[in-house]
C-alpha cells in the first residue's frame, strides 16, 4: 500500500510548489504515487516523475478532463483510492471541491487544511479562523487529506524519473458543462507563493486608490492581495482575497495597507514572517500582530514609500 497525491495543475501546467508541498508532507509516511489528471499533461507528468520521493506517476490525459471538473476528478480519484492508505492534495479551491466528493463516493470523511502530520492517522488543522488548532485522529482506513501549503516545505530534490503509467478512464454520467474561465492575466507573482505580498483594504477608498497598492507591489516585485471589503467594493478581483475564506499566505514580508485586521483577514496572513501595517488608525487591531506599524495616511505614505525604494 502507498499514498496517492493529486498533482495540482493550472490548465496544462504543473503548480510545482503546491504539488511538491503535498508530496513533502506525506513522503515520510510511505511510498508516494502521484495522479496527474487533465488534458495534454505529458509535460507536468514528466516534471512530477522527476520529483524526489515519487515512486510512480499515474496519468489521466483526456480532452474532457481539460477543465478538471470536480465530478470527473472525484470519479477518477474514487476509483483509485481503495488501493492507497492516504489520498492527499494541496488545499486549493479546486481540491476543496473535488476531494470531499471523492471521499464521500468512497464512504470516507475528509480532513481539510492539515498544518501538521502527527502520525499516519493523526493530524493538526486550524479551526475558527485559526483561533484554535485541533488535533484529530482518523478512525478510518483510507484517509483523505488536504494539506495547507503554507505549513509545508516545497524543497524537493530531483531524481531519475519514476515510471509513468497511463490510466484508462471513462467520463462519468454527471453532465455539468464547463462554459468559460476568466483568468486575470498579468505577470505579477502568484499570491499564494510570492515572498512579498502587498494587500489593500477598504481604506484605499476606491479602485484608483487601490492602484497605489498595485504600484507599491510592482515596485517590490510583490503579489497583490486584498481584504474582503476591498474585493466586495470592486477594488480588487475575488481571487486576491486573503483570509479565512480566501487565500492563506505566509510570505517573508506582508504589507497591509488600509486594512483594520478583522479576525477573518488575520486568519489568512498571520504566519507571514514580517508584517508591516500602514493605517491612519493608531489603534488598528492589525497592529497586534505587526512587526512595523506606520500610523499615517496611506495616500501620502505609499508615494513616499515607492519613492524611497
Amino acid at each position: 500500500m502507498s499514498i496517492l497525491v493529486i498533482a495540482d495543475l493550472s490548465g496544462s501546467a504543473l503548480n510545482r510548489e503546491a504539488t511538491a508541498k503535498a508530496i513533502n508532507a506525506v513522503r515520510g509516511l510511505d511510498k508516494v504515487s502521484v495522479l496527474v489528471a487533465g488534458y495534454q499533461v505529458a509535460q507536468p507528468a514528466a516534471e512530477v516523475a522527476a520529483l524526489e520521493g515519487v515512486a510512480r506517476v499515474l496519468v489521466a490525459d483526456q480532452a474532457w478532463l481539460a477543465p478538471r471538473l470536480a465530478e470527473d476528478m472525484a470519479d477518477i480519484i474514487a476509483t483509485l483510492a481503495p488501493g492507497f492508505t492516504h489520498v492527499v492534495a494541496a488545499t486549493s479551491a479546486s481540491s476543496r471541491s473535488y476531494l470531499p466528493r471523492a471521499a464521500a463516493l468512497c464512504d470516507r470523511m475528509v480532513i481539510g487544511d492539515v498544518t501538521r502530520i502527527v502520525d499516519r492517522a493523526t493530524f493538526e488543522r486550524p479551526i475558527y479562523a485559526g483561533n484554535a488548532l485541533e488535533v484529530v485522529e482518523s478512525l478510518e482506513t483510507g484517509i483523505f487529506l488536504t494539506i495547507r501549503p503554507t505549513s509545508f516545505s516545497a524543497s524537493l530534490g530531483v531524481q531519475p524519473p519514476a515510471p509513468i503509467e497511463p490510466l484508462a478512464v471513462e467520463q462519468g454520467a454527471v453532465q455539468t458543462i464547463w462554459i468559460s474561465d476568466s483568468v486575470r492575466s498579468d505577470d505579477r507573482p502568484d499570491l499564494a507563493t510570492a515572498p512579498i505580498v502587498v494587500s489593500g483594504g477598504r481604506g484605499v477608498g476606491s479602485a484608483e486608490g487601490f492602484q497605489l497598492v498595485v504600484q507599491l507591489a510592482d515596485r517590490l516585485g510583490a503579489a497583490v492581495g486584498a481584504s474582503r471589503a476591498a474585493v466586495d467594493a470592486g477594488y480588487a478581483a475575488s481571487d486576491l482575497q486573503v483570509g479565512q475564506t480566501g487565500k492563506v499566505v505566509a510570505p517573508r514580508l506582508y504589507i497591509a495597507v488600509g486594512i483594520s485586521g478583522a479576525i477573518q483577514h488575520v486568519a489568512g496572513m498571520k504566519d507571514s514572517q514580517t508584517v508591516v501595517v500602514i493605517n491612519s488608525d493608531t489603534d488598528a487591531p492589525i497592529n497586534q500582530i505587526a512587526d512595523y506599524v506606520w500610523s499615517t495616511d496611506l495616500f501620502t505614505a505609499l508615494p513616499d514609500l515607492i519613492a524611497a525604494l
Binding site: V135, V136, K270, A308
Partner: peptide, 25 residues
C-alpha cells in the same frame, strides 16, 4: 463520527511587539 478530536489548543502567539516607524526612509 469517523474522526476523533484529540486536543484543541490556541495557536502559537506572534511573539514580537510592533516597532513604530515615522517615515518611508
Amino acid at each position: 463520527p469517523r474522526l476523533r478530536q484529540r486536543a484543541v489548543s490556541p495557536p502559537p502567539a506572534r511573539a514580537k511587539t510592533a516597532i513604530r516607524v515615522e517615515s518611508a526612509a
